[in-house]
Design a protein around this nucleic acid. Sequence first.
DNA 1: CGCGAGCTTGACGTTGTTCAACTAGAGTGG
DNA 2: CCACTCTAGTTGAACAACGTCAAGCTCGCG
Lengths: 231, 231
Amino acid sequence: MLTKDHLHNCKNCKKRNNIFALLNDEELEHVDNNRYELTFNKGEIIFKQGSPLTHVACITEGLAKLYIEGLNKRNLILSFAKPVQMIGGPGMFVDYRHHFSVAAVEETTACLVDTKIIEELIEHNPVFACDLLKRTNQISIANFKKFINLTQKQMHGRIADAFIFLLDEIYGRNPFVITISRQDIADLTAMSKENVIRVIKVFRDQGLLRVDGNVIEILNKKELIRIGETG
Amino acid sequence: MLTKDHLHNCKNCKKRNNIFALLNDEELEHVDNNRYELTFNKGEIIFKQGSPLTHVACITEGLAKLYIEGLNKRNLILSFAKPVQMIGGPGMFVDYRHHFSVAAVEETTACLVDTKIIEELIEHNPVFACDLLKRTNQISIANFKKFINLTQKQMHGRIADAFIFLLDEIYGRNPFVITISRQDIADLTAMSKENVIRVIKVFRDQGLLRVDGNVIEILNKKELIRIGETG
DNA sequence: CGCGAGCTTGACGTTGTTCAACTAGAGTGG
DNA sequence: CCACTCTAGTTGAACAACGTCAAGCTCGCG
């Protein structure tokens, strides 16, 4: 399902990532000529860990999860990508492979841009290169926080963090309908799905959350933040 | 303790990082004019987490640990840096702060290069920029592996990994004298120092290691690798 | 000789996983 | 319209993994 009808071109695109604002018309057109826009159904794989890295993805619609396929079929969700976010592989300049998988959590459309184009831009447009380095660094910093979360907090703190994250970074309103599964929350917090459910139950009983199936309402954000901070 | 006597200049330096081979004479001289070489005693802080990021460090002698200061005075060691490795902060282009601390594990000497110089190089030398992106990506990939290690392996697997790492990446010979403490191994593997000691004892009793104070000999590397792989 | 820091050990309690069973809801075919 | 099935969610109980606490040890150093 390839189409360029939906968005006429990168120059006028309302859903393009900020980084493309750093390009001149000629460069933008070059990107435009080397992209594919396509839509993935819920659950479908966008990038598969281990496969060749040939394109970066820019999410224009929906929600995708970025996750490492670890030991014994266990996954670890690194982050999510929603519209306007770009997913660039760390395999660039290294081994040109994907080091994590990306899958659509909801129906998701993405523009795929050839990595060669990105590399050309890096080489010829220093501002673009700096911005990319900035983004890479921001991801590194976020990963440091994640390291501490996963290794030094216990379950309650990790789940509290997760719900604050889902509210502030993903769904952006309260109450919200979660489109990710309990297993996804487990993969995000590195715990078993059974314990995810148990901790949610505790929070619900304490009046911190209202949970009705997939509808979640954060009732006491401050307390959740406190739990997340103290571990 | 500032000196430039030890190494006459960057151009002839035998201990410079490969990345500087990508610079021309003029650029190298620019670096040379904006660096300080200094020596840190064992235990001394080279960079402090949270402090302003003004320089990157190139280790020319000794061994340093890079660690996040987490919750309740607990640290997490991200990696080590030994001679010829460069330590560049992820705060560059972001908030210009250090996001981890760096401390000398042994007496360590380092060249400190102003981040402004590095940024100028990135902007004017695309090959340098690409190489830096490559390094950043390699670190990201290593961090993914660390995520899986810390969240999906249990203590025996993590300790086995740690000793293989110390042998292959840090000390490079067998037997070797560890200059890091048990607490450091604990911070590296995200476990308590008591359990580090207990697992080492098990490995010793199983004939995988010989341990005499700080002298370690890997007796059965294959089995340790197997334990590390299976978790 | 005594002191202090790092190392070691055992006992104990807590945290978190696993396993098995059960439930609810969404699709599917007769 | 009703079984049937499949998946996600839920619960409880048993168990394993891991951290904490307290005590004792070793060794270098003043």
